[in-house]
Nucleic acid binder design. Structure first.
Length: 829
DNA sequence: ATACATACC
DNA sequence: TACTGGTATGTAT
């Protein structure tokens, strides 16, 4: 079949495995020989088998596309052609050639850094990474076909002398920082793509540069080498005016376009050589690259073009240690694009290339010719992009780096099949993510679990909560459920995993992160729910209700739904909310310290612990109840009083009774003010490179602390990892709040779960009020509480910097919320 | 909203 | 022995 599934290069079969020589320094290699070695090393492996499978999926996609193509009528094509042309005309009219966009890319970055710091590597083929995977290779190694994204063990077969150096990201980050300082001088709004790559808008710099005196365009050799490398180059011998020779990284076949002039006139009186750069774009960019090299002893390549898409392609043109400028004329752009292989365009990868190849499209000129067809076969976004590419269009302004949308961590390991190990690994991942979330002060609503089995099949499972989460326990609660579900689905076979990952996304907007320090009463009152937080799915038809009302309604609903099958166990329970507005700095400090402990997150997974709640709320009168008789959340007895003080004393008594038993109470970690301040400083340092800090970055909620205490009364732990019996399929219980199916049919356990979920929701409506960091909630399992059910407490403390005290008139520095929870509501499927 | 695929470095 | 990890986005359901 002439459908191009087997493409012109004769490697349609397994194009995924074959050498990808679309990379600088890999021209003219013996592809056949290299591919043979790659295949020999891979064949039969699980990885290979999986690649085969995916290749076939792509082929099927292509076949489908070809079928579609075959059904297109002449008329349809004409119409599409016209449509495309209209659009092209439109785009043409908005073509902007006035900007000067530069894409800079450090040459073989990680490898170059390692070579710089270990000159013995200079003349050897080397790569950075491990036997399992390489991040990058130097140009010597590329001659053997060794490149980034290739596993080290295969690279070793291609090049037995290959030296593999482990990655050292801290170092690369440091060097990257130095380079970015230089970027910022040419465009303070530059956008970095990665540690070694950035887009800059040179337009403004060039405009100013025209009137600059020579002095501002003069740069010394080794003027101020602040390279992280310890050793500095001794100036006299090495200050040869040969740019290339300055770099410890040798590029033998460098197509460098930099003349590296600087003849004798470049040697100043001070003895140091210098170079005067001109005012043109090329000179400005060459100057920037020169300065990078002087500062870091590493070389960079650059592309200069009227838009980002072209600049990126251009930076590759004279790599390494070179630059290429595409003139800002329509003619030059169109000429350039005609011969451009589609694969060179950022965004067109292996699969898109293959699909286009199947249609006889390999260069951008073909794209232009086939746009009518493409508009019928590709999605709108896809063909719009292709059309722009074919016209040599791209973004002419460099967008601000958007706020991150997700955060994740994943790990590959040797086969992991034991449930307990999988669960504990899952928790570890959650801990890592939670830590990062805390560092960035983020909270997200969607938790995604990623699994890859030993056959390399990848699965993702996600759940979106009605509220945003950030702590280990919150994230793990979800991830664990997702994982357990997968384990159940596979049972009685175990999941044979080779990778697990946890991602959190759907972050709440920054508005939600910096709300006012609001009265908790707001949550009780109808129509005063936090509008910035989305209303939970099930209740969004009643947005005017307080959370409690909604929760109550939810329960009633469930109750009704299950009236026939479930007896409603407990009567109405009361909840109580108390707070004081004691905002004495001292008190806050002491309670913060009191909560400090050496208990780590992993200590808390099982049983025990928590905190002296009696420190708490000496109520100053402001509270709310919704029933005349109150139920103690600890002992669950009715307390015949409506006086909150009396009631609180009762609870205190209950709690302190419970806490008398040694080792039943442990204090959970709380972040100190000092930590917070340090964290803020770090944030500023990171940000200052790009955008001036927001003026209100230090608003008081940054100083808020929350301690969350969660007490549950059942005897199982929240992180129970007992293997479930999957054979006796009892009724499946679905939590009405989080919608997760529960793997236990024990009603006590189920109720416990629902309680946690409901409470979590409340907690988050409260917690969402403060910018992180928020302490991880502690799930307690105090046997001392026996059968008395589940209680839940939230303590919110606000630590006060002087600034926040000044800027805040009304404070509720210390809030305690307690609501006993009862549930027997459940849902059966 | 979820799952999966593609892409980039 | 051994084929990554982090983020974004597109496509399909």
């Amino acid at each position: 079949m002439e459908n191009g599934v087997n493409n012109s290069k004769g490697e349609g079969f397994l194009s995924r495995m074959a050498l990808n020589d679309n990379k600088a320094g890999m021209e003219g290699l013996d592809r056949d020989k290299i591919n043979k070695i790659i295949m020999e090393s891979s064949k039969g492996s699980r990885f290979y088998e999986n690649e085969l499978k995916r290749e076939q999926q792509v082929n099927q996609r292509i076949e489908k596309m070809m079928l579609q193509k075959a059904q297109i009528t002449e008329q349809q094509l004409k119409k599409a052609q016209a449509e495309v042309e209209r659009m092209a005309t439109e785009l043409e009219r908005s073509r902007d050639l006035s900007r000067v966009i530069v894409h800079v890319d450090m040459d073989a970055f990680y490898a170059a850094v390692e070579i710089r710091d270990c000159p013995e590597l200079k003349d050897k083929p080397m790569a950075v990474g491990s036997m399992s995977m390489l991040s990058t290779s130097n140009y010597h190694a590329r001659k053997y076909g060794v490149r980034a994204a290739m596993p080290g063990f295969i690279a070793k077969k291609l090049c037995p002398n290959l030296v593999i150096v482990p990655t050292n990201f801290a170092k690369y980050r440091a060097v990257s920082g130095e380079v970015r300082e230089i970027f910022a001088e040419y465009d303070p709004h530059f956008q970095s793509v990665s540690l070694d790559e950035a887009y800059l808008d040179f337009t403004d710099h060039l405009e100013q540069r025209q009137s600059w005196p020579e002095s501002l365009r003069t740069h010394r050799f080794h003027a101020s080498s602040t390279a992280t490398g310890e050793e500095q180059i001794k100036l006299p011998q090495e200050a040869v005016p040969e740019e290339k020779d300055l770099s410890p990284v040798l590029f033998d076949d460098s197509p460098s376009s930099s003349p590296c002039l600087s003849g004798p006139e470049g040697v100043g009186a001070a003895g140091g050589a210098f170079e005067v750069f001109g005012t043109s774009v090329e000179e400005a960019v060459r100057e920037m690259r020169f300065r990078i090299e002087q500062k870091t002893m590493l070389t960079a390549s650059a592309g200069i073009a009227p838009n980002m898409m072209l600049a990126k392609v251009c930076s590759d043109k004279n790599k390494p240690n070179g630059q290429y400028r595409l003139p800002s004329t329509r003619e030059a752009v169109m000429d350039f694009v005609q011969n451009l292989p589609v694969r060179k365009v950022s965004g067109i990868g292996k699969v898109s290339e293959k699909m286009l190849n199947a249609l006889g499209i390999s260069s951008c000129s073909h794209l232009g010719q086939q746009m009518g067809l493409l508009s019928l076969l590709f999605s709108e976004t896809a063909w719009h992009h292709l059309l722009q590419v074919s016209l040599g269009l791209g973004s002419t302004f460099i967008p601000r780096h958007e706020e991150r949308k997700s955060m994740s961590t994943e790990r590959t390991f040797k086969e992991l099949s034991k449930v307990e190990e999988q669960l504990s690994l899952c928790r570890e991942l959650c801990e890592d993510v939670a830590e990062d979330m805390k560092e960035e002060g983020l909270k997200g609503k969607t938790v995604t679990l990623k699994l890859k089995n030993v056959s390399f099949e990848v699965k993702t499972r996600a759940l979106t909560l009605p509220y945003a989460v950030a702590t280990v326990d919150e994230i793990f609660a979800v991830a664990k459920d997702l994982l357990k579900t997968e384990i159940d689905n596979e049972s009685p076979q175990p999941l044979r995993l080779r990778l697990m990952g946890v991602r959190i996304s759907a972050f709440v907007s920054s508005d939600d992160k910096k709300p006012l320090q609001r009265s908790i009463i707001g949550f009780l009152q109808p129509g005063k729910t936090d509008s910035s937080e989305e209303v939970p799915r099930q209740t969004c038809d009643q947005p005017k209700q307080s959370f409690f009302q909604r929760a109550h309604a939810k329960r009633l609903q469930l109750q009704a739904a299950n009236a026939s099958t479930q007896e409603e166990g407990l009567g109405e329970k009361a909840f109580v909310i108390t707070y004081t507005d004691t905002c004495a700095q001292k008190g806050v400090e002491s309670s913060t310290k009191a909560n400090k402990s050496n208990c780590t997150a992993s200590d808390l997974s099982e049983n025990d612990y928590v905190s002296p709640i009696e420190a708490h709320a000496s109520t100053s009168g402001c509270g709310a109840t919704v029933s005349e008789s109150l139920t103690c959340p600890v002992c669950f007895r009715q307390v015949e009083t409506t006086d909150l003080n009396v009631f609180n004393r009762h609870i205190d008594q209950c709690l302190s009774d419970a806490s008398i038993k040694p080792n039943q109470w442990t204090v959970f970690d709380t972040e100190s003010d000092l930590d917070l301040e340090n964290h803020q400083k770090e944030c500023e340092e990171v940000e200052s490179n790009r955008v001036p800090p927001q003026e209100d970055q230090h608003s008081l909620e940054n100083d808020s602390l929350q301690t969350v205490l969660l007490i549950n009364g059942d005897n199982k732990t929240a992180t129970s990892s007992q293997p479930q019996s999957h054979n006796d399929k009892g009724p499946i219980l679905i939590c009405p709040v989080c919608q997760l199916s529960q793997d236990s049919d024990d009603l006590t356990i189920f109720n416990h779960h629902v309680d946690l979920c409901l409470n979590r929701e409340v907690l988050h409506e409260l917690g969402g009020q403060t910018l992180s960091p928020i302490n991880p909630p502690s799930v307690i399992n105090s046997k001392a509480l026996g059968e008395c059910g589940t209680a839940f407490c939230v303590f919110s403390q606000t630590s006060h910097s002087l600034q926040s005290l000044r800027s805040c008139s009304v404070l509720f520095p210390y809030q305690a919320v307690m609501f006993p929870v009862r549930t027997l509501s459940m849902m059966q499927v």
